[in-house]
Each structure stands twice: as C-alpha cells, then as structure tokens.
Design a protein around this nucleic acid. Structure first.
Length: 270
DNA sequence: CGCCAGGGGAGCT
DNA sequence: AGCTCCCCTGGC
C-alpha cells in the first residue's frame, strides 16, 4: 500500500471525466483501474490517496500513468481571473489529470465512443476484453481481463464485434486493427510524432475523425495541446466563448482546459 | 410503436 | 466549411 497526499488529484473525478473506460467506482471513494497487465485499487479520502500496490509499481508505473509528476496548480494559475466560467470549471474539476494511457486502447475506445454514451462505451470495452483479451491474475488474486491486442481482431468479419454491442462501429475496429497489423499505420511511429503529424496519421484510420484523433492525442500521446471538440464542448463554446476559445492564452495546455469544461458540463450543468 | 439522443464520421459539394 | 446521410442501442 502506498499512501500519498496529493494536490490536484481526485480519482473519482478522473473516473467520471471519461478519458478512461476501464475505471470503475466500487464503493464511495474507492475506484479500480485496469491498465495493461495491471490492476489497481485507489481509495481517496480528501487529499489522502491510498494506492493498493507496491512502492516499486507505484514509482515505475502508476506515478507516470496518473501524471503525478506534473504540477496542475500552474495550469490552473494560467486561467484568466476574468473568465469566471473556466475558473469555476477548473475549481470543480481541479482533481482531474490527463492520464498516460495505451495508444491502441485509446484508438479502439474512442472509435467506439462515437454517437455513444459513457455507460455503454464502458460495457462495449468490457465485452471485447472478456471475449478477445486474456484473463489475468495478479499477486493479490485480482482477476481481470487485459485489453486485446490488434492481432486478436485480425481475421474477423467486419460485423463480428456487433455481438459485443459495438453496433455499426464494429467495422471501424476490425478495419483499424487490420491497418495496424498490416503495417499500413505504425503505432510506434505515431508515438514519436509531433501533435500535428500524429493527428494527421491517425486520421488515416477508418472511423477516426478530428474529434476522435484529438482524444487519442490527448489521452494516449499526452499532447496537451489537443482540444477535442464534441457536442458538449461545442455547445459550451457557443455559450461562453462566442469569439472562440482563447487558444493562444492556453497554448500547449488547451487539452487540460477542455477536460475541466467537459467534466463541468457533464456533472455540474444546472 | 415511433422518436431521439448518445463525447461523430464518411462522402459529397 | 458546410451539408446530408449513415448507423446501433437504450430510454421514454
């Protein structure tokens, strides 16, 4: 067990922020996370966080995964005091962090996200993990499923993932898996690219549009300048930023601001 | 039963 | 850049 006092970190807010579909609220204050071959439970009690893992695991993996080396206080300080809307949104969602998630997993997750709601996205991901992923058991006896690799989808018919509740998005995932395995698009290459180049490369994938590409850039590649515009953000921009979002002011960290707005709109819209 | 919305995208012009 | 059409589920 690793216990830390952490500023600007709230596991429940991160869970609700919808950047990871493999986080689950257990009891109040307790959240489980699956990342790669790892399972973790985090308990939040005010600023005190208990990570149910070894010190080595925390230092070598989870600290980076949760972006704990970044100082989000400096991000929040950059918000214009005149912008009462963003000030409020950042205050409400001040515990959000941009996770460092797996690239392939984010591609699939956000392919599934289109015209879909968060509850059902979670179920879709769970379904494909249980059908095509591998059962894992860690040292503490937790049983869970890993996220299936691209190879696991090769050879499928385009509609085969409909049984996992993906609907018409099934063919997006099957075709994209083939594009990765065939080498048409190289994930390793994408990881080394700038935001612009990575976005451009991701747009080649069938089913990946601008919004999805930006989500992948933000949540997997940690390009904090990516600013995904979905229906909620679009409405918020129309309402609060009639002259456009001040991207120059928040240059390089627009993605963090996007998350504050998104979370606020979803959970605190009056 | 119909209607519609849920973190869009493809394929046009 | 803007438009139409596409498409699957679940809730009402």
């Amino acid at each position: 067990m690793v216990i830390k006092e952490i500023e600007h970190f709230n596991i429940e807010q991160i869970c609700d922020s919808g950047q990871c579909f493999r986080m689950e609220r257990k009891d109040s204050g307790l959240v489980s996370v699956i990342a790669g071959e790892r399972y973790l439970e985090v308990r939040q009690d005010g600023k005190t966080c208990s990570f149910k893992c070894t010190e080595e695991d925390f230092e070598s993996f989870w600290k980076v995964y949760f972006d704990l080396e970044e100082d989000y206080g400096t991000f929040i300080e950059k918000i214009s005091p005149k912008d009462s809307y963003l000030m409020r949104a950042a205050e409400i969602g001040s515990g959000i962090r941009i996770l460092h998630q797996d690239l392939w997993e984010m591609i699939v997750s956000f392919l599934i996200s289109q015209q879909n709601n968060i509850v059902r996205i979670r179920r879709c991901i769970k379904n494909i993990c249980e059908k095509y992923g591998e059962e894992q058991q860690d040292e503490q006896g937790n049983i869970f499923y890993s996220f299936p690799k691209p190879e696991a989808f090769v050879g499928l018919e385009e509609d085969d993932l409909k049984v996992c509740n993906l609907g018409y998005r099934s063919k997006y995932v099957v075709r994209t898996a083939n594009a990765i395995v065939s080498g048409e698009v190289s994930l390793d290459a994408v990881k080394t690219m700038s935001y612009r180049k990575a976005r451009e490369e991701l747009l080649k994938l069938f089913g990946v549009g601008e919004k999805v590409a930006d989500c992948i850039c933000l949540f997997a590649l940690h390009h904090l300048e990516a600013f995904p515009v979905d229906t909620h953000i679009q409405q918020a921009l129309k309402k609060h930023y009639k002259r456009g979002f001040p991207k120059t002011r928040y240059k390089g960290i627009q993605g963090v601001m996007q998350q504050y707005i998104f979370y606020y709109e979803l959970f605190y819209k009056e």
